[in-house]
């Protein structure tokens, strides 16, 4: 279990070396999320239309180690974009990955860019 969690290390925009063409823009619901597969990783991608922003993070919830975050509701807490896990509503910042309503470990976040209607996610490997 722990090793599963360790597979996901955050990647910052500067560190992104690989831009993976994940899906079409249309595949992700507006103001919601969906999951994509990259190698053996599961990545949650959100189209936060109200903020005109895209976010990506690990699909794995650090609470019970389930692959569910893409199915959570998104929103903000005092301006910080966040996702609420559908299992027990733990919330995580989509900017920093920090657990906002508890002291779970942070989740890994990934940079996203859009080109010609496609969604690209940045990885370092």
């Amino acid at each position: 279990m722990e090793t599963l969690f360790q597979q996901y290390a955050p990647v910052s925009l500067e560190k992104a070396t690989v831009w993976f063409k994940a899906c079409h823009e249309r595949d992700i619901p507006e103001n919601g999320g969906a999951c994509i597969k990259y190698k053996d990783k599961q990545i949650a991608v959100y189209h936060f239309k109200r903020k005109q922003k895209w976010y990506a993070c690990q699909n794995l919830c650090p609470h019970k180690m389930e692959m569910v975050l893409s199915r959570g509701m998104i929103g903000d807490s005092e301006g910080i974009a966040k996702v609420a896990c559908p299992m027990h509503k733990k919330t995580f910042s989509l900017e920093t990955g920090e657990n906002l309503n508890g002291d779970l470990p942070s989740i890994a976040t990934f940079p996203v860019k859009l080109e010609n209607g496609f969604v690209y996610i940045g990885f370092s490997e």
Partner: peptide, 16 residues
């Protein structure tokens, strides 16, 4: 609803 009578971007409490 959010534009007319709320603020911010919503959350897992007000959406449902």
């Amino acid at each position: 609803a959010l534009d007319k009578c709320g603020k911010g971007d919503g959350c897992e409490v007000c959406k449902p």
